[in-house]
Design a protein around this nucleic acid. Sequence first.
RNA 1: GUUCCCAUCGUCUAGUGGCCUAGGACAUCGGCCUCUCACGCCGGUAACACGGGUUCGACUCCCGUUGGGAACGCCA
Length: 503
Amino acid sequence: MTKVRTRFAPSPTGSLHLGGVRTAFYNWLFARQNKGTFVLRIEDTDAERSTEESAKGIIESMQWLGLNWDEGPFFQSERLGIYFDHLEKLRKAGHIYPAFDTQEELDEMRAIAKKEKRNPIYDRRALKLTEAEIKQKMDAGEPFVWRFKVPDTEYTEIPELLMGEPDEHKIRNSTIGDFIITRPGTNDNPGMPLYNFACVIDDALMDITHVIRGMEHLPNTPKQVLMYKALGYKVPQFIHLPIIMKNNKKMSKRDKDYDPNFPVSILERRDLGYLPDATLNFIALLGWSHPESQELLTPFEILENFSVDRLNKANPNFDEQKYMFINGWHVKNRHDYELVETVTPHLEKAGYDLSAYSKSDLEKMMAMEKERCHLLSQFPEALKFFFITPESYEEKGIRKSFYVPEADFILETTVKMISALTDEEMNRATLDSKLAAMVMDLGIKYGIVGPIIRLAITGRTKTPGLAEIIEVLGKDETVKRLENARAFIKTLPPLPVESEATA
RNA sequence: GUUCCCAUCGUCUAGUGGCCUAGGACAUCGGCCUCUCACGCCGGUAACACGGGUUCGACUCCCGUUGGGAACGCCA
């Protein structure tokens, strides 16, 4: 049994998007699981659209996701000699022929085909050219492309593992048409190889055993199989994955209702605070399911359980809410110290000064908020009150808590209690019991006291627990804020009558 | 239009002829927990596209209809 070899072969014409991540991940999984080899190849034969920046972005994305490759990255632009050698081989064997048709002529042919409700396949007019005619045109420097002569055998069989009939997929050759394998060029200045050509040569030469890619490539596959055969190479197994949709449409950044809050670019997702493990977890579930129906998985658990026969054939829809939920789960299950590292850039980006807090303080903040934040980018807002002393208070909270007649007295009592604490007592557990005892003494319900203190020290009505906050905030800052709030309450105008009326 | 692919709750899915009165997850709606929020826990609503076969028996197999998707590039 030959060793499994898979590859991910993106074109560097933009950022790696979520659909590409799925393809890359499945290839990676399949290789890793079979103790095989995973190859990264950059398909940059389209000089017009390919950019170095995109290639870098793709590599960065793969690294960020942890999808490590064993060979590559190979760049097709550096392998042109190989393709031209193969072109020569095909030419000598009579598998290809030059075509001098202009773009306009081809457009016209397609228009006619459409009008006649036919599949627009090439009519082989260039095949009628005599040797002499061809030579004359070539010598004159007329640009031409190379077309592959599709054999007249009735069917081409695709070894497809997922789609269609089990293990077999037949396409009628009459529906294929002689496809172009190079861009236009002349004898002196040959045209660049095209996808269906370069891809086959590379997959063959790189000994790829399983080609796992999106369904949109299924119609290319018979052409490629024909190419393998013409070249005398072994045809690999194909696995065509269903296309990831969004609102039942192909997910794309060219989409009309594309929402920048939900980017398709994986690097943009990263900047928004999505975690690589969560991304892989969510993406894996788009078309694959765990044998025991578990859904919250680490990459390792996915690897342990992945199998091609649990792949789904129908196009899945990309569900942002589930992605967010899964991300939240992964955030929640990260160690606080890891979170400090990944969240710190987000806090700095928000302009916060972290110097007032120790590493352990920051870890405590993570512990406080990680069950609330589904995205890393939500931490700055959630943690804002630790870095910025509140200058105003939530309107709703003021009405509900600061207008309580005992509010000032409660805050005063709290100030006294906190001030009397030793440094050793400034910990969560002690603060908890001290607060409870104070509430008991006050004889007022915690449900009233708590919100008043909360609002005073954070300016908000919804936060983590009071003891945790005070512990991290420290004695001085807490007291300062409590006094601020007392001063604020004194400036409060009498409760407007209308608020009663509107209630 | 042509060729190809697909079809279970709103969404992702389990299901490979009897275990299905169709299971789980997200979302949603109730409730519990609680100093708030969140987390967590408990519970509810919600699906086999339709029509024919095959079979003792069909969500599962076959055919058709309908619906959805992809490709039809001198892009990949």
